[in-house]
């Protein structure tokens, strides 16, 4: 499965998940999913809405406990893992009562860092995340793109090697999204993170990823895995190449 000899950050082996609903009904969400995220890799999971993509993240972050199969975080079974993973949902989930600076330092604060130390750490990255001048603004004063960047900075400050991003640009308009994608690649390359990225946008997945898993409708299972072989750093011009279209065709065959 393309894992080679590289260190694996996240591994799912034959993972299935069933929700028990009222009146004894069962909802099969994931069916025998196997996938891997290697060190410093950018891997996307594409699939239709409601195919259980987000459930994968909820299992990796231990929000959901029970499942069949095996999940390893840095080669440790997920339930024994002490790793605090950077996780970002589709909604920015910024706290409206906190200024941007106080929002982004939340993970540091929860670790027990003092407010001064947290702010000092965060301010080193404010510029990179395009939030200069907005540290003292409240979230409802910011545009969608800026709120998303603030949420990403908060996720980033969790300071894990593993980042799980669940459709972070799903709510943004196409123009804003394009800029954000290039910016995200920059951040990823600078800080050498391992990113697992959920999206339903095929273009986004090809542009960003080293590898892509295509998931089926519910119950989700892996239909196809493909390697995206473009040089880094990438820019949007690759989207006009033959190779790009071939990748797109390959994915479209499955969804």
């Amino acid at each position: 499965m393309g894992c080679d000899n590289m260190a694996s950050r996240v591994v799912l082996k034959n993972v299935s998940k069933t929700y028990r609903m009222d009146q004894g009904k069962r909802l099969d969400t994931l069916d025998d999913v196997s996938l891997a995220l290697n060190d410093k890799e950018f891997v996307s999971i594409v699939g239709p809405s409601g195919c259980g993509k987000s459930t994968i993240f909820r299992l990796i972050t231990k929000i959901e406990g029970s499942f069949q199969g095996e999940i390893l975080i840095n080669d440790v079974p997920v339930k024994d893992s002490r790793e605090t993973i950077s996780y970002m949902q589709q909604k920015d989930l910024l706290m409206p009562w906190r200024k941007i600076m106080d929002n982004v330092i939340l993970p540091l604060e929860l670790k027990g860092f003092s407010r001064e130390k947290s702010q000092k750490l965060a301010s080193e990255h404010i510029d990179e995340f395009g939030l200069t001048g907005f540290e003292q603004a409240y979230p409802n004063q910011l545009s969608g793109g800026m709120r998303q960047r603030a949420a990403l900075l908060r996720t980033f400050l969790v300071d894990s090697n593993i980042m799980l991003l669940d459709e972070p640009f799903g709510a943004l308009d196409a123009m804003t999204r394009g800029g954000m994608q290039e910016w995200l690649l920059n951040i990823w390359q600078t800080y050498q993170k391992s990113v697992l990225f959920i999206t339903h946008d095929v273009d986004e997945a090809i542009f960003l990823s080293d590898r892509i898993y295509v998931l089926s409708e519910r119950p989700g299972h892996v239909l196809h895995e493909l390697k995206i072989d473009f040089d880094r750093p990438r820019n949007k011009s690759i989207m006009h190449s033959e190779k790009y279209l071939a990748y797109k065709k390959e994915i479209s065959a499955y969804c």
């Binding site: 231990k62 605090t84 993973i85 949902q89 909604k91 989930l93 929860l110 670790k111």
Partner: peptide, 14 residues
């Protein structure tokens, strides 16, 4: 409170 926000805080070990 949005339950997803509470989930998020839990992933940050709150």
């Amino acid at each position: 409170v949005d339950p997803e926000l509470i989930d998020l805080m839990k992933t940050m070990d709150a």
